[in-house]
Design a protein around this nucleic acid. Structure first.
Length: 226
DNA sequence: ACCCAGGGTCATA
DNA sequence: TATGACCATGGG
């Protein structure tokens, strides 16, 4: 979808994005995200949950806690095989071992996460994207949930749900979709926080199968039929 | 026995 | 730039 083209920012998206939010909030209630006791745990979770069920990520994070290595320096001191064995339940453990190490290295190289607080959002986003294993969704998870920045997170559920609703065609780019939400909604970190959390809980439960979809709170607007 | 999860990278054309 | 293979466990 090109900028300024019909279908984008015509006012319809604003109505739709707002009404879907109200429906989801009314149905699921506040989610109080991101699950995690610390900023570092949130960032680790964002990397480990890539294409992975959260229940598996929890197991890996618990392994890190029990081994008392849920800190950047401690993670970097582990050998690849040792860290990989701790990450095993989250899947892709060899890939994620490399990604987590690259991320921790970058964090220490920049004097830790707290010193990143003063960075401008755009600069921080570019820096995150330059880290091996951090793509747009992971970067935005970290920006929104670890640094409270006003960035809307787009995931597979967002694309699926809003395509079924007829608001997206389905072939838009990540940045197109992010721009749509950020234009349509009041720019608020707490709103973006709650919205993405609601999309995930909805996508992971109600919106997965057709029978549930019929009973779902969005069924009136939903075009899903296949 | 299948399907897919709160993606990203890399090789290929 | 745009696809496709690849990564891998655990729950339904």
């Amino acid at each position: 979808m090109k900028d300024g083209e019909a279908g984008l920012n015509t006012g319809q998206e604003k109505i739709a994005c707002e009404s879907v939010y109200k429906s989801l909030l009314g149905f699921h209630g506040k989610r109080d995200w991101w699950p995690g006791d610390s900023r570092f745990e949130i960032m680790v979770g964002a990397i480990l949950t890539q294409n992975t069920a959260w229940s598996n990520v929890e197991k890996a994070i618990n392994n890190l806690k029990q081994a008392d290595v849920l800190r950047p320096d401690a993670l970097l001191n582990l050998h690849h095989r040792r860290l990989a064995s701790l990450l095993r339940p989250s899947g892709y453990y060899n890939v994620k071992t490399k990604r987590l190490r690259a991320f921790c290295f970058w964090l220490l190289e920049n004097n830790g996460a707290d010193s990143l607080e003063k960075w401008k959002t755009v600069k921080l986003r570019e820096a995150l994207l330059s880290v091996h294993g951090v793509g747009p969704e992971t970067a935005d998870d970290i920006l929104l949930y670890a640094f409270n920045r006003k960035v809307f997170v787009v995931d597979a559920y967002t694309r699926r749900i809003f395509s079924r609703l007829g608001i997206l065609a389905g072939d838009e780019s990540y940045e197109d979709i992010r721009a749509m939400f950020e234009k349509a909604l009041k720019s608020s970190a707490s709103l973006f926080n709650e919205y993405h959390a609601l999309i995930v809980i909805h996508g992971a439960t109600i919106c997965k199968s057709r029978p549930d979809c019929k009973n779902c709170v969005l069924s009136n607007q939903c075009n899903y039929n296949s």
